[in-house]
């Protein structure tokens, strides 16, 4: 038994099972008011019924499409603008103050504006997710390039490499580590953008469903949806980690035969 407890994953699962069991018992004997915190079994029942009745799929699709489109467009835009600002000083002069301002404010306050500009359909949710992700990635790329080891730049230049070779051999690989370091946060931001956008004004999506659950004081549905979103984000975190380990495989390989 002790051997199993040495495993971090086993300890974590055990702690969660214990917490859920205590919550279940306390809820059933009336110590916790189920109106505010329904028993885990009730939350599970509500989530399962959403899947069995099929009502969730339309909402899942809306949120996933908005979040993933926002993530992809935000990544592309952030990387492009980050490179442009880092390599062309004129672009940096214009972009840096705008990005600093966007970074300083809680960007979700733009949600109502996007609804006015783009309507209550999916495009306003994508736009919010794009802004959240792009600003994050912009700074990862911009700072990543500014932090590039000058030694590598000198090395490639003395080997005869020009700007294109520097970009391919030094800047892009250096920045990849920075971008991948921010990828997990970007996944969370993309879902934040999609859900908040749906929360403000929408006809479908997990955020819309959450808004409905809150307005009807349905705590079981609210908590079920929160856990559902957390679960999906965790799955995407895992995917982001797989991508990171593949793209940065040079960093992870052969640590067992490192020689000093």
């Amino acid at each position: 038994m002790n051997r199993y407890l040495e495993n971090v994953a086993v300890r974590r699962v055990l702690a969660m099972v214990l917490l859920a069991s205590a919550w279940e018992v306390l809820s059933r004997i009336g110590v916790i008011n189920p109106f505010y915190a329904p028993a885990p079994s009730e939350i599970l029942r509500v989530v399962f019924s959403l899947f069995i009745e099929g009502t969730i799929y339309n909402h899942l699709e809306a949120t996933f499409v908005a979040a993933l489109a926002g993530l992809v467009i935000g990544l592309a835009l952030g990387i492009f603008l980050g490179f442009a600002a880092a390599l062309v000083p004129l672009v940096a002069d214009v972009l840096e103050p705008i990005m600093l301002l966007l970074n300083a404010i809680p960007r979700v306050i733009l949600a109502p504006l996007f609804v006015i500009w783009l309507g209550i359909e999916i495009s306003s949710k994508i736009a919010l997710a794009v802004v959240l992700v792009a600003v994050l990635i912009f700074f990862a790329v911009y700072n990543g390039i500014k932090d590039v080891n000058q030694l590598f730049v000198d090395r490639v230049r003395t080997l005869g490499g020009g700007r294109l070779v520097l970009l391919r051999e030094v800047y892009v690989p250096s920045v990849t580590a920075w971008v991948l370091g921010s990828l997990k946060v970007a996944v969370g931001f993309a879902f934040t953008g999609a859900c908040v956008g749906e929360f403000v004004a929408a006809t479908r999506g997990l955020g819309y469903l959450l808004q409905f659950a809150q307005s009807t004081y349905n705590a079981a549905l609210t908590m079920g949806l929160i856990f559902l979103i957390m679960g999906f984000v965790l799955v995407l975190f895992f995917c982001a980690e797989v991508v990171e380990r593949w793209l940065l495989r040079w960093r992870y390989r052969g640590t067992d035969r490192r020689v000093t």
């Binding site: 030694l151 590598f152 000198d154 090395r155 051999e169 690989p173 040079w250 960093r251």
Partner: peptide, 8 residues
């Protein structure tokens, strides 16, 4: 410094 690219 040997200045080798660590990703190569």
């Amino acid at each position: 410094d040997d200045a080798l690219l660590p990703w190569r």
